[in-house]
Write a protein that binds this DNA or RNA. Structure first.
Lengths: 146, 146
DNA sequence: GGTAGATATTTCGCATGCGAACTAAATTCC
DNA sequence: GGAATTTAGTTCGCATGCGAAATATCTACC
């Protein structure tokens, strides 16, 4: 029966993600902060001075992902990278004043996006969506496929 | 009250998309066909000989996106690009024998992914998710932001 | 018929993020 | 204490897909 909707779920997810990505990119054009960069700003807003690996884990990024993101954001003066005094391999990440401003703007922008995301759906329905999205973490774990 | 779940929806969507992407990439490693490439194979499976623009629209890709995808898939011998006899600007895309085999494999793989995506959710719930994902098309339209 | 505008595709530079392979520092184990 | 292993990050090559700008062709309009 049904089975028609899920046929397209993979595709719909992909498109939705890109639509949102584009929207945020266009929205924050002047701001200069992309969606991925906002993510790291939010993390540091809660845990300024986090290790790169911690931030990467919080954002579900692998080492190359967080490394590149940090490079770009450091170049943009949004964050600062300082050596961990206790571990010669590790770096801690800190918001710069510019980064704090960008974070505040991102927070404001997120409010509008959240409003749109929930538009036309009840709290209960959004709850289901959130649960579905969260289920990916167990259904498609990092590391093991087989 | 609630309002806590949607806080993270943007992020959850992003992570879910990447998790699935990685999964598919690892899954189809030998196959050699990525998720994006499967998308085009599916389109051509239904409409062999589609114009690049048509295929791009069906996949919600802009001109540069479909152009690059076609380049890579042509190089991989999955599809063929032939000039449209009626329009000197346009190209039509055709599955190669290799592409047909890859499409068949992708179809099989999609079945497994669909099963996982629906795991733990009722048809009604999946319906809600599908509706939510589809709503992005109107909430975050191409072209206009403001 | 010829010019102005629309349309199909390409190219460029960029951000994102992956896996594989590497470097360097820390930890474990004998 | 020193070798083996683990851990934190980096680098490389790649796929993806965006916006802006360019190219080539087609269509419309005078």
């Amino acid at each position: 029966m049904t089975s028609r909707p899920d046929r397209r779920l993979v595709f719909l997810l992909n498109v939705a993600q890109r639509r949102l990505q584009r929207w945020v990119a266009a929205k924050t054009e002047r701001n200069g902060v992309t969606a991925a960069q906002s993510g790291l700003l939010f993390i540091l807003g809660q845990r300024d001075g986090a290790l790169m690996g911690e931030a990467g884990a919080a954002l579900d990024l692998g080492p190359p992902g967080i490394s590149g993101l940090v490079d770009r954001m450091t170049a943009a003066r949004l964050i600062e990278r300082r050596a961990d005094p206790d571990d010669g391999r590790a770096w801690r990440l800190w918001l710069t004043p510019v980064g704090r401003v960008a974070l505040a703007q991102s927070k404001a922008g997120l409010a509008e996006i959240n409003a749109r995301l929930a538009e036309g759906f009840t709290d209960a329905e959004i709850e289901i969506v959130a649960r579905w999205l969260t289920s990916f973490q167990t259904k498609f774990p990092r590391g093991e496929v087989q």
